[in-house]
Simulated scan of single mutants.
Amino acid sequence: MDSVLRAAAMYVALMILFKIAGRRSLAELTTFDFVLLMIIGEATQQALLGDDFSLTNSIVVIVTLIAVDVGLSLLKRRSSFVSRLIDGEPTVLVEHGKILYERLRHARLIEADLMEAARSSQGIETVEEIKFAILERNGKISVIPKEH
Rank of each mutant, 00 (worst) to 15 (best):
E128W: 06
F53E: 14
N138V: 02
I59L: 15
R137K: 09
L135R: 06
T126E: 12
G22Q: 09
L5P: 01
S142A: 12
A7T: 01
S3I: 00
K19T: 10
L65Y: 02
E102Y: 05
V4A: 03
L65K: 14
T56S: 14
A107I: 08
A13E: 05
L75Y: 09
V92C: 01
V35N: 11
E102D: 15
V82H: 12
M115D: 06
A107E: 08
A67K: 09
V92L: 13
G71S: 13
S121C: 09
V61T: 10
M1I: 03
E116M: 13
T30D: 02
A7M: 08
S80I: 11
F132S: 05
L49F: 09
A9S: 12
D113Q: 04
K131F: 08
L48H: 00
L55M: 15
A27F: 00
D33I: 02
N138L: 06
F53H: 15
L93P: 04
E42I: 10
Q46I: 11
E89T: 15
K76G: 03
I144T: 03
K131G: 04
M115E: 06
E116Q: 14
F32P: 01
I124C: 08
I134P: 04
I134Y: 03
I39S: 10
V82A: 14
A21G: 11
F32V: 13
F18E: 10
L36D: 01
Q45E: 12
P145N: 03
L100M: 12
M1T: 10
A27Y: 00
V4C: 08
L74V: 15
T31W: 07
V63Y: 05
G50A: 12
A133D: 00
S79H: 02
A21I: 07
V127S: 05
V12G: 04
A21T: 05
I16W: 14
D69I: 00
A133N: 01
